[in-house]
Design a protein around this nucleic acid. Structure first.
Lengths: 195, 195
DNA sequence: TGCATATCTGAACAGGCGTTCATTTCAAAG
DNA sequence: CTTTGAAATGAACGCCTGTTCAGATATGCA
C-alpha cells in the first residue's frame, strides 16, 4: 500500500488528520484505535508516529485547530453597526461556520472529557473567548437599551446552545434551505435577546 | 470486598447500575471497562454477568430507563390551560427534570453512537416522542394564534436545545437559584416562540 | 444438622491496545 | 551510479479488553 503518487509525504500528514477526524467523529476517540486510523490512511500503525507524538496530541490538535479557525473566521467577519446588526451577523456566522464543519464540531463537544487536563484548559479557554464575543454583543445591546434580556450571561448560553443545536438535526437537501434556517433562527435569537 | 449487610444481592443489582452510570458519565462508555465497574461495586468482573448479559445492555438499560422516567414524569405533570401556560409548564419541567439527573442526561446525549442499531432505534423513538410533546404545544399555540413562531419544527428544536443546554453550565450554589434560572429561561422560551 | 440454591471468585480465552524500534524501501541529490 | 535520508514496515513490548466457567463460599430452609 502506501504512497501512490508524489511521495515524500507532505501528503500523509494531512491524511492522518483527516482519517482521525472522520473516525473520532463517527465512533469516538476512545473507541478508535491507532491501527484503524492507520488502515484508513493505508499505512501501518507505527508510521503514524512520524506525524504525531501520540494519540492524545492527535485529538488535541484537531480541537485546537478547529477553535482557532473559529476565532479567525469570526475576526474576518464584517461587523454590523448596531448591536442588533451584530447579533444577526453572529447568529448567521455561527450557524454557517458550524454547519460547514459537522465533524470538527461534534468532536469539539463530545471529546472534551478525553483531553488531559492541560489540553482541556487550552480548549476551554478558546471556547470561553468565543462565548465572550456573543456576550459582549448582548452587553452592548443592553447598554444601548436595544435588548431587554433579563440576564446577559444566561442569554449568551441559551443562544449558543440554540444555534449549535442546528448541527444535530440539519441535513443538506432537507425541508429548509440553509438560508431559510439562518433567517428563522436569527428571528428567534433576536426575540430571545429581547430585541 | 462484597456484601457487608443484607446479602442475597437484591442490593448488588442496583449497585452495578449506579456504578456504571457514574463511570459512563465521567469517562464515557468506551473508556470504561467491566473491571472498573466491578471494582467500584466491590466485586470481581465475572460477577457483573449475574446482573447484565453484557456491557452494551447495561448502557442501553440506563438510557431506556432514563427516557421512560422522563415520559412518565411528564405524564404526571399538571397541564396548563392555555398553550402559553403549557409552554411554561414544559419549560420548567424540562429544566428541573434534567438538572436533577445530570449523569443520565449526559449519557443519553453522548453515548447514542455507542448503541447497537436496534437499541439506538428504541432510544431514538423515545426521544422523538418527547420532542413531539413540545411540538404539539407549539402547534396548538399557533392554531390559537397565541404564538407567532415562523416554523414550529425549528422552534421545537431550538427550545429543546436551549433548555437542555442549562445542564452544561448550571452548578448548584452558583450565581442564580434554580427557580430564578427556570424563570429567566421561561421568559426567553416564550419570546422565542413568539408569545 | 444437612441440603439446595444463589452469589461470587479467579483463572483462562482469544484478541486488541498504544507505542517503540531495528530493518527495509525507494526517490532524489551529488 | 552511488550515496543519503526520509518514509514505512512488521514484529515485538507489556498490558488491558469483554466474556465464560469450574469451583469455592455462604446463606435460607427443612
Amino acid at each position: 500500500m502506501a504512497r501512490k503518487t508524489g511521495s515524500h509525504s507532505d501528503i500523509t500528514g494531512p491524511l492522518v488528520r483527516e482519517a482521525a477526524q472522520r473516525l473520532f467523529a463517527r465512533y469516538g476517540y476512545a473507541a478508535v484505535s491507532m491501527r484503524q486510523i492507520a488502515a484508513e490512511v493505508g499505512v501501518q500503525a507505527g508510521a503514524l508516529y512520524l506525524y504525531t507524538p501520540d494519540k492524545q496530541t492527535l485529538l488535541f490538535n484537531l480541537m485546537k485547530t478547529h477553535l482557532e479557525e473559529l476565532h479567525s473566521a469570526w475576526a474576518a467577519e464584517p461587523k454590523g453597526e448596531t448591536p442588533q446588526d451584530r447579533l444577526e451577523v453572529f447568529s448567521r456566522f455561527h450557524i454557517r461556520f458550524h454547519l460547514d464543519r459537522p465533524e470538527e464540531v461534534f468532536i469539539a463537544y463530545m471529546e472534551l472529557r478525553n483531553l488531559e487536563p492541560e489540553n482541556f484548559a487550552v480548549i476551554e479557554s478558546l471556547r470561553r473567548a468565543y462565548e465572550a464575543e456573543l456576550e459582549s454583543i448582548l452587553s452592548d445591546g443592553h447598554t444601548a437599551e436595544e435588548f431587554r434580556a433579563p440576564d446577559i450571561r444566561l442569554a449568551t448560553m441559551a443562544i449558543i446552545a440554540m444555534l449549535t443545536g442546528v448541527n444535530t438535526w440539519y441535513r443538506e437537501g432537507g425541508r429548509l434551505s440553509r438560508d431559510r434556517v439562518e433567517r428563522i433562527y436569527c428571528d428567534m435569537v433576536r426575540r430571545a435577546a429581547g430585541a
